[in-house]
Simulated assay, not measured.
Amino acid sequence: MEVGNGRSTRFWEDNWLQGGPLKVVFPRLFSISDQQGSMIGDCGFWDGLEWIWNFQWRRELFQWELELVNQFHEQLRHVKLSAGRDDKVVWKFDSKGVFSTKSVMHVLQMESLSDEITSYSFTSAWRRELFQWELELVHQLHEWLRPVKLSDGKEDTLVWKFDSKGIFSTKSVLQVLQSETLSDEITSYSFTSSVWRGMVPPRIELFGWFVLIGRVNTKERLSRLGVIRLNDTLCVLCKREIESVEHLFLLCEFTWQVWCRWLRTFGEVWSMPGTIRELFERWTGRHKRKQEQKKWLPGFFAVIWNIWVERNARIFQNQETVVDCVLRKTLLSYNEWTESVSLGG
């Protein structure tokens, strides 16, 4: 099955993913799903050009079931729906997707030959007898191991799978991020080349990147993915609005006070933009000279990073500070990054 808009393929029951129907791969989740019999297109919604999965369960999930949900989302991560294309049945053993007797015979011959030449069975030893729900995990483990083919005459080697020669490079990482994470619409924005300039540590660049494309795990995003409850989405900084990317990093009253005080530190005057992306594009276009950009651009990353740190401190450590404290930490980050000779760590 080749999925287009997901309107004629059943999410749980049809065989549209490698490994078999999802009700077989994740029987526990299927048993508590409130969307049995639903089409793929009814298990999510379009957020602009991005497809968002939205699953409904009959009850609150147990802790060990959340681990299954994580594996479940990981399996769906690379699924790309196409709103303008219908689902269609294809024969996966033919390059054109067309069934033929010849292709069936070819598959049977290859399967038989593979079994004779590469017959190898995995054996597992466990410290204790497994619980029923653990047997389901073992089933998934064996499903993932099924395509593995060992070669007795060849040693293991470490390769970087995103390069044709198997060699790691920063360039290949950037290409993977752009191709796997982003749509053509997103990569067309001018901020794409403005983020990766080595002016702040790589992990801060990556964080800023995810903020700009809306992939940071805010409460609003986590609720859409079914990770947290819908009634637990309130921003911990202002305690008034839903914690979305735009709200947390721009529109929140607490955050905007940080932005305003930071800009006053540089003697700048600013009007509030509509989105964080618009703010960044204005920010990068403020100064054209390279030397001025080296002083100006790290400020953007310093603010959003310390807003995120403050947000996490309130959620996970129950520690709360005021705007002036966040501003001081922002300044410390800025000074550290702009004075560093090398930002490789």
Rank of each mutant, 00 (worst) to 15 (best):
K219M: 10
V176M: 14
K171Q: 13
S169C: 10
T187S: 13
E180D: 09
V195R: 03
Q175E: 12
S172H: 05
T187E: 00
S188R: 13
I204K: 08
C238V: 06
E205N: 03
K239S: 11
G198R: 06
S172K: 10
S179L: 07
S179D: 11
G214S: 13
G166F: 01
V211A: 13
V216T: 15
I213N: 13
F207Y: 15
R224S: 12
G214H: 08
V173K: 01
E205V: 07
V173Q: 10
L206D: 00
K171R: 14
D184M: 05
V173F: 06
I228P: 00
R240M: 06
L177T: 06
D232C: 15
D184C: 03
L177Q: 11
L237K: 02
R224Q: 14
Q175K: 12
F210E: 13
S223T: 10
R240T: 04
T218C: 12
F168L: 09
L174T: 01
I186M: 15
N217H: 09
L230E: 14
I213R: 10
Q175I: 02
L237Y: 04
V236D: 07
W196A: 03
L174D: 00
T170V: 11
S194C: 10
S169N: 09
I186L: 15
R221Y: 00
N217A: 12
Q175L: 08
I228C: 01
S169T: 15
W196G: 02
R203H: 15
G166E: 01
R203L: 08
Q178W: 09
F191R: 01
R203A: 11
R224T: 06
L234D: 02
G214L: 10
E180H: 11
K219S: 09
V211D: 04
N231E: 14
N217S: 10
Q175C: 06
R215T: 09
L234Q: 14
F191S: 04
Q178D: 06
I167T: 13
Q178F: 07
I167K: 14
V216Q: 11
V236Q: 09
F168S: 04
T218N: 05
L212W: 11
W209T: 04
S188E: 11
K171V: 03
L177W: 15
L206M: 14
S169Q: 05
R215G: 05
V176S: 13
I204H: 07
I213G: 09
G198L: 05
T192Q: 09
T233S: 02
V227F: 14
Q178R: 14
S223K: 03
L174Q: 08
V195C: 12
E220D: 14
G226S: 04
F191T: 03
S223D: 00
C235L: 07
T170W: 14
R215V: 08
V176F: 07
L177A: 14
S179F: 07
T192C: 10
I186Q: 15
I167R: 14
S169Y: 08
R215L: 14
G166W: 00
V227Q: 01
V195S: 01
L237S: 03
W196H: 03
T187L: 02
L234S: 12
L177Y: 13
E241Q: 13
